[in-house]
Design a protein around this nucleic acid. Structure first.
Lengths: 92, 92, 92, 92
DNA sequence: TGGCGTATCTTCTTCC
DNA sequence: GGAAGAAGATACGCCA
């Protein structure tokens, strides 16, 4: 890109301002979310657990099982779980 | 803690779903922003430079406040403003 | 605080420099940690799972069970787990 | 993925423990920093202002690079430097 | 003086 | 792989 004529400069300005408006909206929503958490907390709910629930609901079941399986594998390697006996593939 | 009666369970569910809706909105806006960048790029503008511009315009505002804050800090350090709490004379 | 005599100014400078040195050390160690993760990844291990393991090992068993229990409570409230039958205390 | 043979399990364990040791060191240094702030506070200095000073001293270096980067960005926008990729004439 | 809310700082993830 | 943004952890200051 080299330099802009007046028309392009105006065009650029419009893009920039649209983005700034959208970012403003995004920020507002982020604040709304915080408020809901605060309200839930005031009602006696635990925010951290709520976040965990929301995260879980986002993930699909297959991924969830895969993750859990992987974690168990590592736990077993670290001696945090009893060994299993049935031979399987070895990796790494 | 034990478990929730039906009313509380319902209440929790409503909080969770409100947050999920808000996060959905936030995500939509984030995508809108990306689209504007894409459109601007299609028109021949450079996204990285636009980001720089936006950052600068944000800074300009933030810096006004920052400057003012810093000025006060140093004024206080120079004894040109009253201390936050008690103590007024040379210390340390 | 008001203003500093030469001695105090020198004293302040020493505090600042001690902190800057310590922060430098901290940064170095943070980089070392990143390197170990990178090396582990190169050997075929998954960094995310490793982080989970490390986090789990940090928490004591009692807290872990409490957290899991709380999470189950919320899951049940959200219908993500089958209900249990034995009556207990109700909260919230 | 399946599970690890003894050798790999041992390898994983070593990575984990190296990281845990490093994190322990990092934590120690963080505590040292807090102590220095506490000591400074005990001597009559204000921690918040000290943090501001440290941030400024960091910025001074970062800003040199930032300024240079920004200058290039604008030079490029003004056609005073070759573009990163192709296109050289007035566009948009 | 201990809990609560805020604010900063760091960490983690995503996008380029 | 490096930067930008979101998320999470931590630390400070206030109020009761």
């Amino acid at each position: 890109m080299a330099f802009f004529d007046g028309l392009s400069a105006e065009h650029l300005k419009q893009f920039i301002e649209r983005i700034e408006r959208l970012e403003e909206e995004k920020k507002t929503i982020a604040e709304d979310i915080k408020e809901v958490f605060a309200e839930a907390k005031g009602t006696g709910f635990d925010a951290a657990t709520m976040r965990t629930i929301i995260k879980l609901r986002k993930k699909d079941q297959a991924d969830l099982e895969e993750e859990e399986y992987l974690l168990d594998t590592y736990k077993r390697a670290m001696g945090m779980l009893p060994e299993i006996s049935g031979e399987d593939e070895k990796v790494a």
